[in-house]
Nucleic acid binder design. Structure first.
Lengths: 239, 239
DNA sequence: CGTAAGCTTGAATAAAATCAAGCTTTGTGG
DNA sequence: CCACAAAGCTTGATTTTATTCAAGCTTACG
């Protein structure tokens, strides 16, 4: 079983054997979380960093009136709180949307690796800046795209991200999330998500049956979503 | 004149004299941009990083139909493209919303500093993770807050961020942006921004006359906005 | 086989965008 | 110093979009 973090990073730059060994060492302790449980809670001060190995995790923010917003969806190979190495305190929850297997690494060990292997440290920094770039893409979609285009954009992004870590095949991937989760990612009501999803299906560009998404017309979906993958930094180059 | 980046970072951790000297060296070459001009364009591959010294800069994304969305507003002390050190290509513009003075530092020089002073390197990493945290706060506001609360949240955030770099006094600060800019940050139409602004003024919590914002009732505004400053990492501690 | 949880539908209501003016301020040139 | 653009701000009316409310339906699973 390949380390998804290695897949994520080696898509962006070449890794030395030394660096790969260091990454593998970071993913030794694994732990499971059942769907619906919180890995990290608002207010926590984590002392280790969590890397998703299997499953889907979400950053969930709760408002005073009980509303929930999901600001990011994390797939295998994503560090959900690498930045907790630097940050004070979590201002949101990280929740397992599906059953998850994660790797835990104590912060001092992460720090040691970044100091011993500065190039690898830069790549971990890169991973957090890609997170920020994804956040910006979500902001644009939330602020200025129609629900239909927004949903298409989301499905395009998920396809690319899952493909990178080997979890997509023939433009199909598993996405075991509910319409409630989707509503909290798109900033819409569940009813509207349901109707928008029907509109999207009606275009024939996507089928989403059970938990399997199949993109039937990638070019059409890309255009509908105005999806440009530049923000995901998919080119392999020295960083 | 104090270096705003030093103010930004030393609010979060103690800086050694060596580190302060290195930061000052990074801000030697300054350059001006008139309001409305682009510092960086989508598609650019910058070879130096830009730090805002004076003025306000925005990350602007343009959609096919001409719509604009602003995903971040940058104030003095903010690096607008520190990550371009790591990233491929800009996927958006950075525009001067007001007249700006910025500092330019060639990437190799930035990289050299981060390798020579790893702690300072971590603080620059921290700066980019704070950017990501602000993005998440904007996502939550866009997705699940009323326009009124969203606007209140924005004004709270601006107050704190400007205060840190010495640009706020007595809960007042200059914010020389148009309602068009504001609309593109909140994801609303200009007409609706105008009406929401009137509602906000009517609460008496804020006055915004000309380009001066004065918060009359900080606690009230904070509550309306559900503003929690944890995401800005204002505590000074070893990172 | 029964029961949640999640999905779907229709109708009513609320929120926001759009359209189309008019108004105000600011800066500029005669 | 005044006139006059141009940019930005404000307003009312209308249309579109999305939410809310209230059911009924479907599916997975113990």
């Amino acid at each position: 079983m390949t380390n998804p973090l290695v897949m994520f990073l080696s898509r962006r730059d070449d890794l030395s054997t030394d660096e790969i060994a260091a990454l593998d060492a970071l993913t030794l302790n694994s732990q499971d979380y059942a769907a619906g449980t919180a890995m990290i809670r608002q207010g926590d001060r984590p002392t280790s960093s969590i890397l998703v190995l299997e499953g889907l995790a979400a950053r969930a923010h709760y408002l005073a009136d009980g509303k929930r917003m999901i600001s990011a969806l994390h797939v295998p190979g994503d560090y959900v709180d690498l930045h907790s190495l630097l940050l004070d305190q979590m201002d949101h929850d990280v929740t397992a949307l599906t059953d998850c297997r994660v790797a835990l690494t104590a912060h001092p060990e992460v720090r040691r690796v970044t100091e011993r292997l500065p190039h690898l440290g830069r790549l971990l920094w890169l991973a957090t800046t890609i997170d920020a770039a994804m956040h910006r893409a979500w902001i644009v979609a939330l602020g200025r795209m129609s629900p239909l285009s927004h949903m298409a954009h989301f499905l395009c992004e998920m396809y690319i991200r899952l493909d990178i870590v080997g979890l997509a095949k023939d433009y199909s991937y598993r996405l075991a999330i509910t319409q409630i989760d989707l509503a909290d990612m798109l900033g819409l009501s569940v009813v509207h998500v349901n109707r928008t999803l029907q509109d999207l299906r009606a275009t024939g560009m996507v089928s989403w049956v059970g938990s399997t998404v199949s993109i039937k017309d990638w070019d059409g979906l890309r255009e509908l979503a105005q999806f440009e993958d530049a923000y995901l930094n998919l080119n392999k180059r020295a960083r």
